[in-house]
């Protein structure tokens, strides 16, 4: 099967910091790809290159190609908002929009004209809040400010909001980092369900989570992809010393 996303010879610099070095990757469709690696190795940067977020920061430079469905997302004339709608990013730090809980989820639906009439907005908001496992906690205060939520709740709100725009690709940057094990487990189960329809790229520091979810594993170190492959190979029989050291907790 043709990979959903292809990264070719990607290099990224922040001013003088060489954050990503010669990345070549193929991300399989409708599977969960887990990216692991020590802090600062470039995981977030890699995700941000996939939804064209790097260009928000003026000091970044990049070279190389990224293809989604065989099409270069950095080609001239590509609508950047389409790319971002297609590859929805769940940021490392959840950040609600300055709106109510309801509107946080409905906002994406509205700007993309995905709900021609009002009633279906209600239904969709409920649907995606349920998906993210937040509905029960917020159903009585949908029109309260989203800032009133706890960090873990905000994280799930951001998941609901990200799912609501119906992306094809979900880029999750440690989407369970602020959650307790039970809520995290809930999100993990959702991700397992979602992978039938979505290509999911997940950054995580939690080894057990990676083992539970991964269909494909990428291990990064100091801006490079050291190793990538099936979880059976990477977790049980890593070819590289640095992978082994990381898995054994030496970083």
């Amino acid at each position: 099967m043709e990979p959903h996303i292809q990264v070719r010879d990607l290099n990224v610099y922040y001013e003088k910091i060489h954050a990503l070095k010669d990345i070549d990757l193929e991300i399989p469709r409708h599977q969960i790809t887990v990216i692991m690696g020590p802090s600062g190795c470039g995981k977030t940067t890699l995700l941000k290159s996939l939804n064209r977020f790097l260009e928000l920061n003026e000091s970044t430079r990049m070279s190389g190609n990224i293809l989604i469905d065989g099409e270069d997302i950095y080609a001239l004339g590509v609508d950047v908002t389409e790319v971002r709608k297609k590859a929805g990013l769940l940021a490392q730090h959840p950040f609600p929009l300055p709106m109510s809980i309801y509107d946080n989820v409905a906002y994406g639906l509205r700007i993309h004209g995905m709900c021609p009439n009002g009633r279906s907005v209600d239904a969709k908001v409920q649907h995606y809040l349920l998906e993210a496992g937040l509905w029960e906690e917020v159903k009585d205060r949908l029109h309260f400010p989203a800032t009133g939520l706890s960090v873990g709740q905000q994280q799930r709100l951001c998941l609901a909001r990200g799912l609501a725009i119906e992306p094809e690709i979900l880029l999750g940057d440690e989407p369970t980092s602020a959650l307790d094990p039970i809520s995290a487990q809930h999100i993990e189960n959702r991700l397992m369900d979602l992978k039938n329809e979505y290509t999911i790229i997940l950054v995580t520091h939690i080894l057990r989570q990676a083992k539970r979810l991964a269909d494909y594993v990428v291990f990064m170190y100091l801006g490079k992809v050291i190793e990538s492959g099936l979880p059976g190979e990477i977790f049980d029989n890593p070819q590289e010393e640095r992978t082994l050291a990381y898995l054994e907790g030496q970083f």
Binding site: N51, F53, R84, L97, Y107, G108, I111
Partner: peptide, 21 residues
Amino acid sequence: IDMEEAAYALGATRFETAMHV
């Protein structure tokens, strides 16, 4: 800055982000 990025991540245009967020 994270707030603007949150809107961009949903595929909002610059104009939409400026006006709504």
